[in-house]
Nucleic acid binder design. Structure first.
Lengths: 248, 248
DNA sequence: TTAAACCTTTGATCTGCGTCAAAGAAGACT
DNA sequence: AGTCTTCTTTGACGCAGATCAAAGGTTTAA
């Protein structure tokens, strides 16, 4: 999950606008020009698989609009989501030919892509890009490890609360809204996708959401729209200490 | 988990020998000299906490000998291991002041450290280091996501088999031994530590190891020494497709 | 060698979540 | 508006793994 770098001019990368702060927040004009030259756009419909695990990956890029997921599937069909990709998140690995996970579009999405080879060549000659990617990757690593605690030790109710807290925080960050008091947002995932993220079944997800509703922690209208009445209460339900470590 | 880079001279970093391939596999002599100048050694006894979560981290470094773990603990004491640190693995984050996890020495360990500031300055001026760290971090990210599948979807028996497979493979890699047929190794972890890694209780770990013994998949002498009779069988028990994706 | 501390195994019981099943709701299309 | 499809909720029941408890091994130190 990426945050804006405060103090950086936001309109670096041509018509992508701030979307590429992930890649080029520190680039100078020259480097940006070169990024412009090798980039192109691709769209995918909701439900489409962008990249199959094991495929050759010809590009890297970032999400411009929409939501995608990173998932792993076992032979017998058990599925675990290992990442949630939001606008501005980076997809793909410099130096890796083969995709390790499925990337699936959860909504309609637009991606801005760079062919892998030229991107890697550019990385060689532009230290800032490797440094920026390192910071992004460290953030992702923290998120993955945070999630290992959720999957390994938290109870169903705590897992739901953790997920809601993450989504709420992301929305709150983008809106620069207060973290205290009410927060509303639309769930970007179906119950089944939530279950795949949380290591639960969709029935358990549904039951726990109902329970949080009944206990007045949240309210839900029309399946997707959630209101968190009090963020602190939610974080307590998530079993997190104070800020939940969900920061960053 | 780091592998040797084939074709690289192994004795780059002075008296650390190959231990710093992690950091300097691509460094030229000049850069290595500078690494030598800012490095120092620290030892810790088994059971000691090297770094407390939330502490200010004055250094980065790598494990020279011994085993350490990266763990997260909830207020009520529930613990999840989020990483296993073996010799040559990197500890710490350039650009991060605060340690996000506890680092605990599982055995007596020796670390080779660099003060964070000079190391970061060196990263600025030495693109190869950032690129090398990026590759390492991507490997760690893959390992963490692999583990998310284990924690989210695998059954107790599969989890044990997955852990044994990882340890066996690491030993096999270091010994350049065949991956077919018998493999023997010593478990670097107590049952409790295994449980913390696997998101189980120590009783369940013990029971499942007994079951794998009874079913002839492994044999164990003296609590720690394990013999895997057939690696393919173990990988099947782990629920992994063919090679288990444990590669890398 | 004996004791003490620790780690591991095994048993009995309990429970949270998965599984199976069926009945609502909410969109999407005609 | 009405039908279809997809998503969600709720219920009943069973089981894998947690919890509680105690005994058996292994290691360390005296």
């Amino acid at each position: 999950m990426l945050l804006d770098m405060p103090g950086q001019a936001p309109s670096h990368c041509g018509d992508c606008q701030i979307r590429h702060r992930a890649v080029c927040a520190k680039c100078d004009t020259d480097e940006l020009q070169r990024l412009e030259e090798i980039k192109y756009y691709r769209s995918f419909e909701a439900g489409q698989t962008v990249i199959w695990s094991g495929d050759h990956m010809g590009f890297v890029g970032s999400i411009v609009t929409g939501i995608a997921t990173l998932t792993q599937t076992m032979e017998d069909g058990r599925t675990q989501m290992v990442g949630l990709l939001l606008p501005s998140d980076f997809v793909g690995r410099p130096g890796r030919e083969i995709a390790p996970y499925d990337v699936v579009a959860t909504s309609d999405i637009v991606m801005c892509c760079f062919r892998r080879k030229p991107f890697e060549e550019m990385m060689e000659s532009t230290p800032h890009i490797a440094q920026r990617l390192l910071q992004m990757t460290l953030d992702e690593l923290d998120a993955a490890r945070e999630w290992m605690l959720v999957l390994g030790r938290k109870k169903a109710r705590e897992r739901i609360a953790s997920l809601l807290a993450i989504i709420a925080r992301r929305d709150a960050t983008l809106k620069l809204a207060s973290l205290q008091g009410k927060i509303e947002f639309d769930l970007p995932l179906t119950r089944e996708a939530m279950a795949d993220y949380l290591g639960l079944t969709l029935e358990t997800v549904s039951r726990q959401i109902s329970a949080l509703k009944k206990d007045g922690v949240i309210s839900v209208e029309g399946n997707r729209h959630v209101t968190v009445h009090d963020m602190d209460t939610l974080l307590q339900e998530a079993g997190d200490d104070t800020d939940g470590g969900i920061l960053s």
